[in-house]
Structures are given as structure tokens and as C-alpha cells.
Simulated assay, not measured.
Amino acid sequence: MPLTLYKRPGGKIYHYRGSINGQRLRGSTGTAKKAIAERFISQLEEKHWKGDFDGPEAILRFSDAAAHYRLAERSHRFLSMVEDYWKDTLVKSITSGAVRKAAMALYPKATGATRNRHVIVPTQAVINHAASLDLCSPLKVERFPENYKIKTPVTWEWVQAFMAASNPHLAALCCFMFLTGARVSEAINLRWEDVDLVKRRAKIRQTKIGDERNAHLPAALIAAIANIESDRERGSKVFKYSTRSTANPQWMKACKRAGIPFYSFHCCRHGFATSLLHKGVDPITVSKLGGWKSAQHVFETYGHAMSDDTLADRLTDTPVTPGAVASMQTIGKTKG
């Protein structure tokens, strides 16, 4: 049955109903003018027939692809911005070059990293998700060059000095970020029901990648959290700060009181990764423990060379026992 127009009793707006190639359709044209309503359903019929003849890619709009992406409960970070930019643009017309031009238009003065993260990544994620549903072809986009800077990590010694000059909640917050690798947003949003001091575990809700992970709580962190457990209320935040903005002034004051360099919240996360890498923990394990998206990201961001030129001493730092010396002397005489 082709699409037909009708008005509801007492209504002025034209609605349509019918079917196209077995698919039932009905809805509002949004107009009270019959000529416009007839044009509306004509274009609607053309669109659906074109989709049947040429495949879904012929009619797939970015807004539709984004809706599929949201229904899949994927990360929505920066998604609203690209949705506003592409709107109802046909996905088939969004090329690699078009995405790069969009990034430059939206962020004319930004770094390559910002353009990649805010525009290319979410746009590509939406389209490639649609591709996984056989709605379009996958999209590859050349990224803008990124200049990786060596990030300044805090050390355990810095953390201890900071904690000594802080109130118990701020001290525990700092200790938590350094010993679990949590982002500041993840740490501040930690709830008491997510903490088990007996099992030495905390559930961290990873805001950036939309996932969760269980973090081990070392003894020093258990002690720091135990110092604020008296304020515990179900549903309340562990470290009491509502946002990073409320914690930041106290953070700066603690650095000044301790007489130590000011490092940001995120430097604690840098310290977690850098310290583990320098202690010989492999990047794959570090990325898993700290909730990074990949071991490659950890290696590229935190795996910079150590400045200690005496590291070669570690090659011979195995304790030498008298028995081992005698054994090596015996081997030497035998070869001689």
C-alpha cells in the first residue's frame, strides 16, 4: 500500500501511513499545507526505495549512525560536538579529508592531539560502528602529528611530603591516585560502597573509557583511607570533594606548606605508570593496572628513557657468594 495522507479528527497537520516494499511507515509531515505534505511523502518514498536499490549506505546519515552508536552504550566523550557539526550529512560523503578539514575548522589553533581526540576519534568511532552493523563502509582517517612531551611524574617521596602537609582527606586522595593510577575525576567520584578495606580492593569507574576496573590497595593506602573512615556514609564520596575545582586550592596550599614543587593531580597518574615501568613492570601490565586503553599508549607516553647513566650496574647486581666464585673458578680451570 503506497503512502497516503490524512488528517486526524479536528487536526490541521497532515500525517502519512502506508508501506514501501513491505516496510510499514506512518508519521507526521509537520505541515498543514497539502502540497508540501505531498512533496514530503514523495521524497520519503524516494529515500526508502533508493535505500532498497543501492543499500543502506546510500541513505545513512551521520545523525542516524550516531544514534546507533549511543544505543550501543559506547563512550560519548566529545560525541555531541561532532553530532552538531555533521548533523544529517550522508555518511558516504564523510571522507578522510572531510574529517581533517572539520578538525581544522573546529579547532583552528589547537594542537594535533586535540584535533585527533576531539574530532577525528569520535567521528571515526561512530562511522566504524555503523560499518560493523553493515550499514556503511569503514573509514580510515590520517591523524594529525602529535608532539609527545615527557610528562613530569611525582615520586613516592613527593607523595609522602605532600601527605604530611595535607588534611587527611586530601592526603588520602593524593595517595590513592599515585598508588592506583586513578584519574582525578575517578578518584573524586569514588564511593564508600566501592571500597573494601578487608579485601584491599576498590572499584574504579573509569570515566574516560566508560569501563570499570578493580584496583589493589597497598598498605600505605589502606592506612590513609582508614584515617578518614570515621566520616563514612553510604552513598557518600570517600574523599569528600565535590569536584576537582574544590580540591585544587587545597592542593596548591599543601604543596606550598610542604615546600615541594607544585605538580597537578594528573602527575600522580604519571608517577604511577613511570614508577612501575622503571621498576621493570611491563607496559601491558601497567596499562591493565592503570586502566589505559593500550600498552602502546603507556609505552609512548611514559616509557621515556631514565636519566640515570649508572643503570648498567644493574646487569651485575646479583649478589656474589663464595660458592658461586669457586664454581666459576673451577669452570675457568677446566676450560684452560
Score class of each variant (00 low, 15 high):
K203R: 11
D231I: 10
K50S: 14
F176M: 04
W192Y: 02
D309H: 12
G10S: 02
A187R: 06
A130T: 05
S185W: 03
L197K: 10
R200A: 13
L190R: 15
F272Y: 08
A258I: 05
R201T: 12
I188F: 01
P122R: 06
C175L: 14
Y14W: 07
N248D: 14
T318A: 01
L277R: 09
A37F: 02
Y69M: 01
E229I: 01
H266T: 11
N189P: 03
K34N: 11
A305R: 09
H48K: 06
R24E: 14
I204A: 05
S230Y: 14
R257K: 12
R234P: 14
A223F: 11
L133S: 09
N147Q: 12
P108D: 00
Q23Y: 05
D282A: 07
Q23C: 05
G291E: 01
Y263E: 13
T29Y: 00
R100M: 04
S236V: 14
K33L: 10
H216N: 03
G291A: 00
K279W: 03
K149Q: 13
V119T: 08
S275T: 08
D282N: 15
D54T: 11
K33V: 13
A125F: 01
G11P: 00
P56M: 03
P261F: 05
V82I: 13
T111Q: 10
A226D: 14
S19I: 01
T301L: 12
R269D: 06
F176L: 03
A125V: 01
A226W: 07
